[in-house]
Design a protein around this nucleic acid. Structure first.
Length: 137
DNA sequence: GCCAACGTTGGC
DNA sequence: GCCAACGTTGGC
């Protein structure tokens, strides 16, 4: 089982929008970055991820699950762009903000802290555990 | 709204 | 294949 982080601007598509999709989840389309795409290609059905609100809130707010493995992005003309489907699992009891993550020594190597621009990121098992602890789980 | 960081593009 | 120019992202 691997762990990931999905970033989204809540203005455009936020946690509440994903929850509203229910069991069917949402195609995580629109990614046009090779690193992010490669991360999605590596995902397995059932992998878990954090749903992070960029710009507004700047916090991980929920846990998502990979509902469908990598497939061509239906919004891309070029089939080289792929994406997964994700669905909401549960909200975090307490959102974990970027500031808190930066202040936590155990998260100093987290991609979110060091390369905030990557929109789909891997999260290590240790980092995952720390985030959940901070979130009150 | 600014700007730093990063990725991509295209000229050479 | 290098690198300057450009566009985009996202924190501040």
């Amino acid at each position: 089982m691997a762990y990931w982080l999905f970033k989204s601007e809540p203005d455009v598509f936020g946690w509440d929008d994903l929850v509203a999709r229910g069991e069917r989840g949402e195609e995580w389309d629109g990614v046009r970055n090779y690193q992010a795409r490669n991360n999605m290609r590596a995902m397995k059905r059932g992998d878990l991820g954090l749903f992070y609100h960029s710009n507004i809130g700047k916090a991980a707010v929920g846990i998502v699950e990979v509902a469908a493995e990598s497939h061509p992005d239906s919004t891309a003309a070029d089939p080289k762009w792929e994406c997964v489907d994700i669905r909401a699992v549960r909200p975090l009891p307490r959102p974990v903000t970027l500031d808190e993550a930066k202040a936590e020594p155990r998260l100093k190597d987290m991609v979110l802290v060091n390369n905030s621009r990557l929109s789909v990121q891997p999260v290590s098992e240790a980092e995952w555990a720390v985030i959940l602890e901070m979130a009150g789980l």
